[in-house]
């Protein structure tokens, strides 16, 4: 997680309603955590995603990304495969929270008609601005302060650790 919350990366474009069975199929859930990245998007329209994705890449998808299961293995697989940010108009609640809790940034914006796979975009999460390949800038939803705080801490666990330490003092 970069402190400035600025992301520059190559896009992978996905459809509406990419559910958690597509992101990380049920059979892979009990696999060791360090192997999950091999199964990122294994159930999706792009089953070989994990071999193509590079560190820093950005997923742009349609509505209701991450609907379905509460499996945190889904965002973990994406993060460990190298995905730095996911942008979709809407997210399923549990997936969105899981991503943030493990320090994987998500932003609400509809870019599906503005970009294609392979495009490079620059996103400033704190201002919600997205610079498209043609230089145009569009706005997304700025995450709330508590969300930015979890991301800045590098995930919920670090935040909880800080909280508990404070209580003991």
């Amino acid at each position: 997680m970069n402190k400035n919350m600025i992301f520059k990366g190559r896009i992978w474009l996905f459809d509406d309603a990419v559910d958690t069975d597509q992101i990380l199929p049920g059979y892979a859930m009990a696999y060791p955590q360090d192997e999950l990245k091999k199964y990122a998007m294994a159930g999706s329209a792009m089953p070989d995603f994990s071999q193509k994705v590079q560190v820093g890449d950005i997923i742009v998808a349609g509505n209701n990304f991450g609907c379905g299961s509460s499996r945190e293995q889904a965002p973990v697989s994406l993060k460990s495969a190298g995905v730095s940010l996911i942008i979709a108009p809407t997210f399923a609640r549990i997936f969105r929270r899981n991503a943030i809790n493990i320090g994987l940034a998500v932003m609400q914006a509809d870019l599906t008609t503005l970009v294609k796979t392979g495009d490079i975009i620059t996103v400033d999460l704190k201002s919600g601005s997205v610079e498209l390949p043609d230089g145009n800038v569009v706005s997304g939803h700025v995450p709330g302060e508590n969300i930015l705080a979890i991301l800045a801490a590098g995930g919920l666990i670090n935040k909880v650790r800080q909280q508990l330490t404070k209580q003991e003092v």
Binding site: S70, R97, N101, I102, N146, L164
Partner: peptide, 18 residues
């Protein structure tokens, strides 16, 4: 309320949920 593993771990430690 359904949560993921990390939020569950936090709830197990603190007894609270945000």
């Amino acid at each position: 309320i359904g949560v993921g593993s990390t939020e569950f771990a936090a709830a197990m430690a603190t007894g609270t949920l945000d």
